[in-house]
Design a protein around this nucleic acid. Structure first.
Lengths: 233, 233
DNA sequence: CGCCTTTTGTCGGACATCTGACAGACAGGC
DNA sequence: GCCTGTCTGTCAGATGTCCGACAAAAGGCG
């Protein structure tokens, strides 16, 4: 059943994630309910365990931010939402970026039952692929793009995730504020704010509302997203 | 069989990798030999396939460099050596950094037989974990450390991989030259060269020979590796 | 509607790194 | 031993970003 082979190749945004949540939400004495417990987190709360055990979790509602932490800096790697599955026992910190409910289970318990539930395996691969994909994107951002290029790439990704074509007049919802965007793009909120407003002044887009923008000259955006290498920023 | 669950938790440098190469090297009509073919690459040669198919490979001899490519910049993620298994169908480019022999198989064929060969699954997890671990290290380098810190961390890792304590007088072999080190640390060879020589002048180590150094004041090295955040470089 | 908290915008100076260029050292081949 | 190719060392100037600080805007609550 070498589904791990897919980790390297699977696109992160595959459909069908709600099935694992539906499976775990079933009432009664469903066997999985004995494996997973539901835990709630407030906004800002970290995912920690005193015994540092190895848990697998599924996001039921809300949003978890996976990030690296060093000194007093944070680098966000991914935002995990409903249906996303991942592990606590990594180098990554996890924090609820809004009120969040998780299904949690010890990894050893999940291993015992996973062969009988393909949806579990599918969810894990999907979660891994999502973080891996975002990790590669982040590496490209940090190694090859200046701040403006990273912002442009984030906007293009946000449009794609919302199923919106890159055309003048379209409204692109942004799920992150300035500070969160800075943490995801590996820079500071001052740099993001300054650059973002400069891009608006150059006509690439306009501010529609707090967390949405209306596209303007999309050629500018595309050029910044693709052509803006560190060379000749 | 949820061994994919281990991807998140497994330390990348686990023992026992030679077993997969020994298995694949067996003579005669061993079933795996029908799945894997041996391919040789010259130094500098890229791993490409005209049909862009999805292959799994195991390094038999030599070394493959996995890297991201953008414009004319490269960012190395990992050097795969004997026993390391990985996939061609990722965003990563692969290049032989010395003459190299691989066992290669189509992913679909590997999936059909992997349940019968735990060594295959083990090798894949190990390969994934190695690249993942190195990816996290690289993200920490790029996001949190200046050039000097990255060099110090690379030296500390090289010492650990060679089983050498960080003590004055010890000789640490470095497997990479300046240019390769720069590509692995996400900077330029001029920056690495300038910084490396400055670290020598400050007494952290001395040049033993072309690709080895003799440790000096290891407190300096440790401080640079751990304390040198982007803040207050 | 006013107040408080949070988020965002902007600034000048400091710092880290990149860049193209050039020169020297080293290794391998003839 | 010489030549060539590769690798390494160094430089000055340019560029991008960070930083602490301060102010303004926005949102939520009573």
């Amino acid at each position: 059943m070498g589904f791990a082979l897919w980790v390297c190749t699977m696109p992160p945004h595959s459909p069908g994630h709600a099935s694992i949540v539906a499976l775990l939400e079933q009432e009664g004495t469903h066997p999985l309910r004995g494996v997973f417990q539901m835990v709630a987190f407030e906004r800002g709360q970290l995912l920690t365990h005193p015994d540092d055990a190895d848990y697998i979790f599924v996001v039921k509602t809300g949003c978890l931010r996976a990030f690296l932490l060093a000194f007093d800096r944070e680098l966000s790697l991914a935002y995990l939402r409903q249906g996303d599955m991942f592990s606590t026992h990594t180098r990554l910190q996890m924090q609820a970026s809004e009120p969040t409910e998780l299904f949690m289970a010890r990894r050893t318990a999940v291993e015992r039952v996973s062969a009988a539930y393909p949806a579990l395996q599918y969810a894990l691969i999907h979660g891994l692929a999502k973080v891996l994909g975002q990790t590669m994107t982040l590496l490209e951002d940090l190694a090859f793009h200046h701040a403006r290029g990273r912002i442009a790439r984030y906007i293009v990704r946000s449009a794609a995730q919302a199923g919106i074509d890159l055309q003048r007049g379209q409204v692109v919802p942004l799920t992150l504020g300035m500070e969160e965007m800075a943490a995801l793009l590996g820079t500071t909120r001052q740099t993001v704010s300054t650059e973002f407003n400069s891009m608006i002044r150059e006509g690439a887009f306009a501010r529609e509302r707090r967390r949405a923008l209306r596209l303007g000259d999309v050629t500018l955006l595309k050029n910044w997203a693709s052509g803006d290498a560190i060379r000749g920023g």
